[in-house]
Design a protein around this nucleic acid. Structure first.
Lengths: 187, 187
DNA sequence: CAAATTGAGTTAACGGTGTTAAAGTAACGT
DNA sequence: ACGTTACTTTAACACCGTTAACTCAATTTG
């Protein structure tokens, strides 16, 4: 065999892995299945990726980038107040639209290496919120503590997403709107 | 073999399983290891438990009971305001002291059966918070919406715990106090 | 009291997992 | 033409959850 132009095997592997994660969650990826789907034997993958973890890690970074891009795309001319509203809405929208990517981002097994690489990526939301709150404080709006406010906002957002994802939040529909209002009107 | 007094094998299995979960997390439990630790062959476990999932399920229910007991033990004569403070503090304390039990409660793999059994158990915190907020509303304190308030409180608590557990919350020390104040002073 | 039944445990095995070692093969530079 | 190199394969290891078939002691039953 070894036709010729398998030049993009790693890309095809990542594409397929992403497809599976999005469709079934990160638990669904499996070296042999991944390989056969891509038309190659399982061990071939190890020429391009150190391990299954490495693939998940790369996928996770990609997912985080996707979320961060959405946040970065928020209109810069918005008031900090409006910015925070947009931020929350986009964060929730991402989690709702890509639950399995969000789960990958927050639940998937970590190794030590992952921590160092991934922290800043998910941390981005926090930093954006904190920036907006600091801007508000500078404008004279009474914000008790931008750092804590941003952390709490993030905690709420993530708490909501996480509980929703685990199915621990039976009927939280209709919450989103009011919750968002109350959430950010206080900071 | 079949000595004689292996009468409490299921108890010994659960005890060991709990020990492992507390020490290493639910990922650490494994039928063969569990069995050998208890001095029995792996298949013997299946005489008492349907599956590994069933063991985790039972463990999860026990952990939830433990958390709920702590919450139930809150002094009933406290004002709703103080009650909420205690509630938050106990919830966080439980998660901090037993991170692996908290993870078992919120992360561990669910099957359909688990959902029906476990929902109400973790839901308890929410219900307690909601009760307190309703009492406050009845006393004339302006509480916008007890249901949403309680949900947000729970979301924040869980968001904090979950982010902390995933290691996504690098330095949140010192947060707890102020966070708690701000968290409940607003409801 | 002997025979049948039951309960609690065993060993062997199946099908699946991530991963490694050794081998093979096609393409390329010399 | 040849050896090097990049890529891919087959075989295998060490696990995993789970099932089937069996053993053996204790208990019930006629």
């Amino acid at each position: 065999m070894t036709r010729a132009a398998n030049i993009d095997l790693p890309t095809r592997i990542m594409k397929e892995a992403e497809r599976v994660v999005i469709a079934e969650g990160y638990e669904g990826i499996n070296m042999r299945r991944l390989a056969s789907k891509v038309g190659v034997s399982a061990t071939a993958i190890y020429h391009y990726f150190e391990s299954k973890e490495a693939i998940l890690r790369k996928l996770r970074i990609g997912a985080a980038e996707r979320l961060n891009d959405r946040i970065r795309a928020i209109d810069a001319s918005l008031s900090p107040d409006e910015f925070l509203g947009e931020l929350g809405q986009r964060y929730l929208a991402f989690a709702r639209e890509n639950p399995n990517l969000y789960r990958l981002l927050t639940e998937a097994p970590f190794d030590e290496r992952a921590e160092a690489e991934d922290h800043p990526v998910l941390y981005f939301t926090y930093l954006a919120a904190r920036g907006a709150l600091e801007k508000m404080a500078a404008q004279g709006v009474p914000v008790p503590n931008p750092r804590h406010g941003a952390m709490m906002g993030w905690m709420m957002l993530h708490g909501f997403c996480s509980l929703m994802m685990s199915g621990l939040l039976p009927r939280a529909e209709g919450m989103t709107r009011e919750h968002l209002e109350e959430l950010f009107m206080r900071y």
